[in-house]
């Protein structure tokens, strides 16, 4: 712990040097992911590479009917998850023309790529955000969750006792307890690979560089250039998600370029690290505890009416 900063500062808001804050002296630059969903082709190489490298077990063979996504969500046995969203792009004239051909009232919905001038197929590879202020880590009572020297967040499986606190704390629904194992698992940002100078498996497998791994500052610069470019090209919805250090989790180590609102991708629109309020909570606790003490003592010793 470094002295020069107040508890509140350390619990939320921008943080100059996360690893230093976590107690590393002269840590290496903070590393992370910029996932540019605008070039994702939904090949799922990242999902498979992650499982291969980390020996993550199979996570259920079940057709979900959510476009080409049969994974569903991140979890203890899915550390990368590619999402697919099909959106109609609607052009009335054509739409009604086809409706007529199909012998239907123009108003009736008969969607069709051309007659609505196309669908839009959004694809995005989700992963643990490696938050600047990581709720999972803050609440972990065993210290199983740690901050690494590159400011990533990692579970130590040999320490975790499966209390599940991290699960309730994560504002993104990332980390989870693995059935039958009892411990919590999530993306390690390939701590073992990066330690040996390798890229994370998912980023290495990604053919289009939708997943970009690197020093966070550099990634942020690149991401901002990319998002302005897209906006100039008419992608008005293009936005960065989890990139700003002043957001609810102090900016994430893994941030995204999205082409629609975060919730469309299943992301929380405005996540906040729960421990931002921890001091207030302890305050209320003090109040309540005092009230209890007073209540009991008052009624039993003060001798009620």
């Amino acid at each position: 712990m470094v002295e020069h900063r107040s508890l509140t500062e350390r619990l939320s808001g921008p943080l100059a040097d996360v690893a230093d804050d976590a107690g590393y002296s002269e840590p290496p630059p903070r590393m992370g992911f910029f996932t540019d969903t605008s070039v994702c082709i939904g090949c799922k190489a990242c999902e498979v590479a992650c499982k291969e490298w980390n020996d993550v077990p199979e996570d259920g063979i079940k057709l979900l009917g959510s476009s080409y996504d049969n994974t569903g969500q991140l979890g203890a046995s899915t550390w990368r998850h590619v999402k697919f969203i099909e959106q109609p792009i609607y052009v009335p004239e054509r739409h009604d023309q086809l409706a007529a051909d199909l012998g239907q009232a123009p108003t009736q919905s008969t969607p069709s790529t051309q007659d609505e001038a196309g669908v839009r197929w959004l694809m995005a590879s989700d992963v643990c955000k490696h938050c600047t202020h990581a709720a999972c880590l803050d609440v972990c009572p065993t210290g199983a969750l740690i901050r690494t020297e590159t400011a990533t967040v990692v579970v130590q499986p040999d320490v975790c006792n499966g209390c599940g606190y991290c699960v309730t704390a994560c504002p993104y629904g990332v980390i989870d307890i693995r059935e039958g194992d009892g411990r919590a698992f999530k993306c390690t940002l390939c701590y073992d690979r990066t330690g040996a100078g390798l890229m994370p498996a998912c980023a290495t497998a990604c053919p289009t560089e939708s997943i970009q791994y690197g020093p966070l500052d550099e990634l942020r610069e690149r991401a901002n250039a990319r998002v302005t470019q897209l906006q100039l090209e008419g992608e008005t919805q293009a936005q960065l998600y989890n990139e700003r250090p002043d957001d609810g989790v102090g900016g994430a180590g893994a941030f995204f370029l999205l082409l629609d609102k975060p919730e469309v991708y299943g992301f929380p629109p405005d996540p906040v690290v729960t421990t931002r309020d921890i001091r207030k909570m302890w305050g209320y606790l003090a109040g309540a505890a005092a009230a209890v003490a007073a209540g009991v003592v008052g009624t039993l010793i003060g001798g009620g009416p």
């Binding site: 499982k51 291969e52 199979e58 996570d59 259920g60 063979i61 080409y68 049969n70």
Partner: peptide, 12 residues
Amino acid sequence: LPYLAELQPEFF
């Protein structure tokens, strides 16, 4: 292969 089969689990 489970890692691939789980990604497209059924004929559709």
